[in-house]
């Protein structure tokens, strides 16, 4: 199955419950300030899903545009955030003119993409010489072994997961895409298995498979899994990188 088809299948399935589960997951990230967005600017999010990240820019920018591969996610975004401009499209071939957007961002999208450099290069093209690119994603520790176990776990949880990467890999992706890093921000928070795999969104057998993996390999993932009654708590790590054309 192609990467695109896997993403569409998983997110068409998840769309109705996804917005509810992920509501507020970006609220602790100081994304708007970090982005240096200005009130006259246009912001594009590549892989906007149901708009939970993009909506944070409301009141900080003039125009918000979200692109996603999955019609179901965009349908939810349209209902919940009618002020967003929405487009269905593929991140590998962005349907936008060159240098047409001030800030091109993506949040929690690159870990669905095995080969992200063409995507970041497309973001660079649309941002143009004066624009900025901001990438936000979960990250692994710098341990290759821990990253490998975390990715095995993520792939059980979500068949459209490609690869979570350590911060050093994001820096290489950004600079290999013809950008230079302006700023970066590493964030850590706590999450729960019951929230990460909300029963309303995930099939029960998948939750059980993930539980089994955590019991067996939890300590090897670098995610600090700790049992809490029937639930598990873990550390979620995210990275934000702001970049401009090198």
């Amino acid at each position: 199955m192609s990467e695109e088809r896997a993403i569409q299948e998983e997110f068409e399935r998840a769309a109705p419950a996804f917005a509810e589960r992920t509501r507020g997951r970006f609220d602790d990230l100081p994304a708007t300030g970090f982005s240096r967005v200005e009130s006259h600017e246009t912001v594009l999010e590549v892989g906007c899903g149901t708009g939970n990240f993009l909506r944070q820019f409301r009141g900080h920018a003039q125009r918000l545009i979200g692109l996603d591969l999955t019609a179901g996610m965009l349908g939810v975004a349209k209902t919940q955030h009618p002020d967003l401009g929405l487009v269905q499209g593929n991140a590998r071939r962005l349907p936008f003119a060159s240098a047409s957007v001030d800030l091109v961002t993506s949040a929690q999208a690159l870990h669905h993409i095995w080969d992200p450099i063409p995507v970041v290069m497309e973001m660079r093209r649309v941002a143009g010489p004066q624009g900025r690119v901001m990438v936000v994603d979960q990250h692994t520790t710098e341990s290759y072994e821990q990253a490998s176990f975390m990715n095995q776990l993520e792939a059980i949880r979500d068949p459209s997961h490609a690869v979570s990467r350590p911060p050093s890999a994001f820096r290489i992706i950004i600079t290999s895409s013809g950008l230079e890093i302006v700023d970066e921000h590493l964030w850590e928070g706590t999450n729960r298995l019951s929230q990460w795999m909300w029963p309303g969104e995930f099939p029960e057998e998948r939750i059980e498979q993930v539980r089994g993996f955590i019991e067996k390999h939890g300590p090897e993932t670098g995610m600090d899994w700790e049992r809490d009654g029937d639930d598990w708590v873990f550390t979620r790590r995210r990275m934000m990188i702001l970049a401009r054309r090198a």
């Binding site: 487009v87 593929n90 071939r93 349907p95 936008f96 003119a97």
Partner: peptide, 15 residues
């Protein structure tokens, strides 16, 4: 305004 910045993802032409 959205239509202004849209472009063809195939040939990058105006739409």
């Amino acid at each position: 305004k959205l239509l202004e910045i849209l472009a063809c993802p195939n040939c990058r032409g105006d739409v």
